[in-house]
Simulated assay, not measured.
Amino acid sequence: MPEAAFTTPEYKLFPSPRNRHREVFLHEVFVAHPYALIDLPSFDFQGKYSLFAAHRLADGKNGQLVTFELEADARKFGEKFIPD
């Protein structure tokens, strides 16, 4: 059974069942496309990462939150991700 949703100061998060690492890492990228398919393994990141369906509390916007162990991976994702 997937983990239940949880709330941080900025988001209500719903973990992806495909996450290898079930934690919120320091470096975050919010993707304002809640239905975009994000194939994280295809980016070939150096560190750990995790994906969450996200509800941003500040403005009520839904999307996805990708978190990264390494800042360089967050930059790489931000530069290369193109929503479908």
Rank of each mutant, 00 (worst) to 15 (best):
E71S: 15
T7V: 13
K61M: 06
S42P: 03
K80H: 15
R20A: 12
S42H: 00
F14I: 13
G47Q: 04
A4T: 10
F30E: 09
F52M: 07
R22P: 01
D44Q: 15
A53M: 09
P41S: 08
L40N: 01
R20E: 13
L37E: 11
I38Q: 03
E71Q: 15
M1I: 00
P34N: 06
F81D: 03
F68G: 05
S42A: 15
G60N: 04
A53I: 00
V31A: 10
A4R: 10
P83R: 04
A5T: 00
V29K: 08
D59H: 13
A32P: 05
L40D: 10
L40F: 07
H55Q: 12
K80G: 13
G60E: 02
Q46Y: 06
H33G: 02
E79H: 00
R18P: 01
K12D: 06
L37N: 10
T8V: 08
P34R: 03
D84H: 11
K48V: 09
E69M: 05
G60W: 08
L13E: 00
E28G: 03
K76Q: 15
G63N: 03
A58I: 05
F6Y: 08
R20I: 07
N62I: 04
H21G: 08
E3P: 09
L26R: 14
G63P: 07
A53C: 07
V24N: 11
A32N: 12
T7G: 03
R75E: 14
G60F: 05
D44R: 15
H21I: 03
H55S: 07
